[in-house]
């Protein structure tokens, strides 16, 4: 495997409470469409979008998930192999901010990434078009979100509006660029090791024949 050729597929997962606008963000980014109508997402499904990042064609596979517990997809195998996890909250809804910790934990446990400390998360504060209804004053809000991000290993924070397409394109571009940079860093650091790990894993599963627990 050559050091430069890596999969040009980026898998992005969007998590957050119901109604914060996960589906709207994805639709705005992928289809440039927005609807005021709320339709709860059932289960988890993805859309793809091809983007150019510095002369590279990258396919983004964006998984939209259900915020409502009773509509959440049965299994979350799609967490595995994610390149980035987008946490979303609604700047006019304080509870949705409170839940961020648990969404992050849930992701880390189920996805079990190799290096959880440095796994790329991005925080999106959505609905900034509803400035007047903000749960806290805009300024305090930014501080609060930023300090939470800092406490979680410095994850980037973007304030966006799916409705008015504010910052949505930019945020997802940054997400792609960030995940891509990390990937190439990964491969250039340990190109040999990566191959070995894969080999060993194959050996293990073929010799044990699946779960022997």
């Amino acid at each position: 495997m050559s050091g430069t050729r890596r999969k040009a597929l980026l898998k992005v997962i969007i998590l957050g409470d119901s109604g914060v606008g996960k589906t709207s963000l994805m639709n705005q980014y992928v289809n440039r469409r927005f609807s005021n109508q709320y339709k709860a997402t059932i289960g988890a499904d993805f859309l793809t979008k091809d983007v150019m990042i510095d002369d590279r064609l990258v396919t983004m596979q964006i998984w939209d998930t259900a915020g409502q517990e009773r509509f959440q997809s049965l299994g979350v195998a799609f967490y595995r192999g994610a390149d980035c996890c987008v946490l979303a909250f609604d700047v006019t809804n304080a509870v949705s901010f409170k839940s961020l910790d648990s969404w992050r934990d849930e992701f880390l446990i189920q996805a079990s990434p190799r290096d959880p400390e440095h796994f790329p998360f991005v925080l999106l504060g959505n609905k900034i078009d509803m400035e007047a209804n903000r749960a806290v004053s805009a300024k305090r809000h930014v501080t609060m979100a930023q300090s939470w991000c800092a406490a979680k290993g410095g994850m980037p924070y973007y304030e966006v509006s799916a409705k008015e397409a504010v910052n949505v394109e930019a945020a997802f571009q940054a997400i792609a660029r960030d995940a891509l940079a990390r990937e190439s860093a990964d491969t250039s650091d340990f190109p040999e090791l990566e191959n070995n790990i894969n080999l060993n894993e194959n050996n293990r599963s073929s010799s044990s024949g699946g779960c022997n627990c």
Binding site: L74, G75, Q110, C211
Partner: peptide
Amino acid sequence: CETCKGNAFICELCTDKQIIFP
């Protein structure tokens, strides 16, 4: 189906990475 496979489970109680379904 990518979507349906995505909604599969991976047993949280062991290290086996095979997806499983109800």
